[in-house]
Amino acid sequence: MHDTDDPLLPPFDTRIAVAVRDDLEAWQRLNVTAFLASGIAAAHPHLVGRPYADADGTAYLPLLGMPVLVFEASAPTLVAARERAVRRGLPIAVYTADMFRTGHDAANRAAVAAVAGPELDLVGCAVHGPRNAVDKVLKGASLHP
């Protein structure tokens, strides 16, 4: 940890990374990224900064307080990333192709619950953890263009 013990000040000891499948439409990539980033924020509220305000005093919602790296990956790379995260005990958020066909959170959870982990049709995943561990989980993914 750094001198201030503030995880939102550089240099960052941890990393937030989102990986989306390389064959998705642009709107799907954006949707999946937004959902997965919200999972990281929900699981790690200490990574959310303070609310924003402009010079006029208009208040804005807080955001994640550190960079979010967005990657693209093939379907097999996402499957491998899920397996590595699970094996390392690194919490992971997932988004499956079936979730595009649902309309609410309970249906999304049911779609994931209906399929064994290794068989999930992943279109994205997100992890937060030590930089080295996150890099190893996402081995084979490349930064999104």
Rank of each mutant, 00 (worst) to 15 (best):
Ala55Trp: 04
Arg87Tyr: 06
Glu72Leu: 03
Pro76Asn: 02
Pro145Tyr: 15
Ile40Lys: 02
Ala42Gln: 15
Ile92Lys: 06
Ala53Ile: 11
Asp121Pro: 02
Asp105Met: 13
Ala55Arg: 08
Tyr52Trp: 10
Ala34Trp: 03
Val94Ile: 09
Met66Val: 11
Leu36Asn: 01
Asp98Ile: 01
Ile40Pro: 05
Asn132Phe: 14
Pro76Phe: 04
His104Gly: 08
His128Thr: 09
Thr102His: 03
Ala17Asp: 00
Asp6Ser: 01
Leu47Asp: 15
Gly103Asn: 14
Arg88Met: 06
Gly124Met: 04
Ser142Arg: 12
Ala59Val: 06
Ala80Ile: 06
Ala43Tyr: 12
Gly57Thr: 01
Ala93Leu: 01
Met99Ile: 06
Pro76Ile: 06
His104Asp: 14
Ala107Tyr: 10
Leu64Trp: 02
Met99Tyr: 15
Leu120Gly: 00
Asp135Ser: 12
Lys136His: 10
Thr96Tyr: 03
Ala75Tyr: 03
Met66His: 09
Ala17Gly: 12
Asp22Gly: 06
Asp105Leu: 15
Gly129Leu: 02
Arg87Ile: 02
Leu24Val: 04
Arg84Cys: 00
Leu24Trp: 05
Ala59Cys: 15
Ala75Arg: 07
Gly49Ser: 04
Met1His: 15
Ala97Trp: 10
Gln28Arg: 15
Ser142Trp: 14
Leu143Lys: 09
Ala85Met: 06
Arg29Leu: 01
Leu122Lys: 07
Leu30Val: 11
Ala113Thr: 04
Thr4His: 13
Leu30Asp: 15
Val137Met: 07
Ala53Pro: 12
Gly124Val: 04
Ala75Met: 03
Met1Pro: 11
Pro10Tyr: 12
Leu24Arg: 03
Gly103Ile: 11
Gly39Thr: 14
Arg82Lys: 12
Gly65Thr: 08
Gly103Ala: 08
Arg29Ala: 12
Ile92His: 05
Gly57Asn: 04
Ala81Val: 00
Ala106Cys: 09
Glu119Ser: 08
Ala110Trp: 07
Pro91Thr: 10
His46Pro: 14
Asp22Ser: 03
Val134Asn: 00
Tyr52Gly: 13
Leu90Met: 05
Gly124Pro: 08
Ala116Lys: 04
Pro62Asn: 03
Val20Pro: 01
Gly103Tyr: 08
Ile16Asn: 05
Thr77His: 11
Ala59Lys: 10
Val86Cys: 09
Asp121Phe: 07
Arg82Ala: 08
Arg88Cys: 00
Pro91Ser: 03
Pro7Asp: 00
Leu63Glu: 05
Gly49Pro: 06
Pro10Cys: 04
Phe100Ile: 03
Asp6Lys: 06
Asp5Tyr: 13
Val137Ala: 09
Leu138His: 01
Gly49Glu: 12
Asp5Arg: 13
Gly49Leu: 13
Arg21His: 10
Val70Tyr: 09
Leu24Gly: 07
